[in-house]
């Protein structure tokens, strides 16, 4: 295998880890609360700004800012579920869709209002290391490792703890979960909180690599949607593998086609999956 191809695989995997981390929150929310959070990208954008400002104002390293961002975004997710989603949990899809779409509009334009359309990023000391002719960017590698660690922690949490089990039970059968004495509204809030905390973590990890700007979330959320559809919208492992696949697709299509056409490539994958395997590669129908 040529070095170029190997390099593309590495780039794709590193990127894919971050995509997986963004998508896993979306999957969790969809799987449990049964709502597609159209504002998911905006929470990513907010957390990128959060890390950016923590760095800019207080000199907090973006990776250290995870300790602030994760709990803060968990709280935000909890509040959003309580205030906006809970009242429409039994409403028709239209109300649910536009509640999160409206939220996305507000957050995106609030960012534009407060922070202008400028591109902002954090300059860190981390640099690229070279390893027998392969370039590996340190922040990307760190991001990849962090992403996998967070996903692993989440999976263990869902498998081992009572709360985790209750959330999984709720995702499978709401009524039965209720009859087993599970406080489903509390679990919804926890699930939404975790989903937003995951995307919050992704933002903090991303800021040394990407620019923060008001519409950055819209860019990433499209990818997250494709990942979720690809992996199966209720499978967390599917989201992980889907993220890695899309990362590879992006690396290769950017190299062989054009980086500008990557959205078109995503969309083709998106439609093909929806048509050929609506449950995704790893989901249950």
């Amino acid at each position: 295998m040529s070095t170029a191809v190997l390099q593309l695989i590495i780039n794709g995997l590193l990127l894919g880890g971050i995509y997986a981390l963004i998508s896993i929150g979306l999957t969790l929310i969809f799987g449990v609360v049964e709502i597609i959070n159209f504002a998911h990208g905006e929470f990513l954008m907010l957390s990128m700004y959060a890390s950016y400002w923590l760095f800019q104002l207080y000199g907090v390293d973006p990776y250290v800012s995870l300790f602030v961002v994760i709990p803060a975004f968990f709280a935000i997710g909890w509040a959003v579920q309580r205030i906006i989603i809970q009242p429409i949990i039994h409403a028709p899809p239209l109300n649910q869709i536009f509640a999160t779409v409206g939220m996305s509009l507000v957050l995106q334009n609030a960012a534009l209002f407060f922070w202008k359309a400028d591109y902002r990023t954090v300059r860190t000391a981390y640099s690229t290391v070279s390893f027998s002719g392969l370039m590996i960017s340190t922040p990307r590698l760190v991001a990849f490792v962090f992403a996998l660690a967070i996903i692993a922690a989440l999976l263990i949490f869902l498998k081992r703890t009572y709360t985790g089990k209750a959330i999984r039970a709720l995702a499978q059968e709401k009524r039965a979960a209720m009859l087993m004495g599970i406080d489903i509204y509390r679990m919804y809030k926890i699930a939404f909180g975790i989903g937003i905390a995951c995307v919050g973590a992704a933002g903090a990890i991303l800021i040394p690599i990407y620019y923060a700007f008001p519409t950055v979330g819209a860019m990433f959320v499209l990818i997250a949607f494709v990942v979720v559809i690809l992996g199966g919208y209720n499978s967390l492992v599917g989201a992980l593998i889907g993220g890695l696949i899309i990362g590879m697709v992006e690396a290769f299509s950017g190299f062989f086609l054009s980086p500008h056409l990557k959205e078109a490539v995503y969309f083709v994958i998106f439609i093909l999956i929806l048509l050929l395997r609506p449950a995704g590669l790893f989901g249950r129908a």
């Binding site: 109300n95 409206g102 334009n109 209002f113």
Partner: peptide
């Protein structure tokens, strides 16, 4: 004064409308 403010208002109106006045 600032771009985006009208969309903030729009978004809020939308969220409130679908929750309370569908």
């Amino acid at each position: 004064i600032s771009a985006g403010l009208n969309f903030i208002v729009y978004g809020i109106v939308l969220v409130v409308a679908v929750i309370y006045f569908p």
